[in-house]
């Protein structure tokens, strides 16, 4: 049973159309990677899914319910959590306040929310030490942990991650990818946008390669890693050296 179904999605800014009708599916217990060069439309896709960009055409359903025209705050309530590019924490707020805002939609159940925040501190012990520290003063890796924890509080059905590895040292990237894997193994559906193709194809189950607003190739991650078209268009050049 597929959770997220994207059919013929078209999105644009002003006169420019960025996505020309793309199809994507993501099921439970699956990591789906969306790869592609900058400007291909990866971030735009994610922003359209979570309601931050208006959809011009095509359909998006989450668990059978259409997301087209639904405002972002309602989509969050429907079980889609989006960790945006560059993390976008509330820098002048404390770690704890950031996590509380992740549970904004369960503010009528404070006891349960508190318990879930404690679970996140268990998952990221470094955040527990820094719970009263302002989020803007954390290191890049710690900020990414807050961003992911903040998205997990509501126990989303679909977790959307936009370049979680950006600017992080490889050691931190590995531990973040490790957590993504654990979430997948526990049944969560994950849509992952990444620049870092080699590493991403290693943890993903399936992948799509986006180029200039169209899906160029799709398939099992292991097959895509070997696909000569992908190697030429994406992994080629420096990365193959």
């Amino acid at each position: 049973m597929t959770l997220l179904v994207v059919e013929g999605l078209r999105v644009g800014y002003g006169k420019v159309e960025v996505l020309h009708g793309i199809d994507i599916t993501v099921g439970p217990s699956e990591i789906v990677a969306l790869l592609g060069s900058n400007g291909a439309g990866k971030t735009t896709t994610l922003r359209a899914l979570s309601g931050l960009e208006p959809i011009r055409g095509g359909g998006v359903t989450l668990g059978g319910t259409s997301l087209v025209g639904v405002p972002a705050h309602r989509i969050a309530a429907m079980g889609l959590a989006h960790v945006p590019e560059r993390r976008r924490l509330f820098a002048p707020l404390s770690v704890e306040e950031n996590l509380k805002l992740g549970g904004y939609l369960m503010r009528d159940k404070p006891a349960e929310l508190k318990q879930r925040i404690e679970i996140m501190y268990g998952l990221f012990p470094r955040l527990a030490e820094r719970r009263l520290q302002l989020a803007g003063t954390l290191s890049g890796g710690e900020q990414q942990m807050v961003a992911i924890a903040r998205a997990l509080i509501l126990k989303p059905r679909l977790l959307v991650l936009d370049e979680p590895s950006m600017g992080l040292a490889p050691l931190i990237v590995r531990s973040i990818f490790g957590i993504v894997r654990r979430l997948r193994d526990e049944g969560m559906a994950i849509l992952l946008v990444e620049q870092n193709a080699r590493q991403t194809l290693r943890i993903a189950d399936r992948a799509y390669v986006l180029e200039n607003g169209d899906i160029l190739v799709q398939g099992a991650a292991s097959a895509l890693a070997q696909d000569p078209r992908v190697q030429a268009a994406y992994l080629g050049g420096v990365a193959a050296a």
Binding site: P71, H73, R74, P84, R88, L89, L93, K100, L101
Partner: peptide, 20 residues
Amino acid sequence: TAMRALAVDRDAARLMGINV
């Protein structure tokens, strides 16, 4: 808290489910 959050980043606030 939502007020202070959306003062910082409106889009991120929307993603938290805040009706900005």
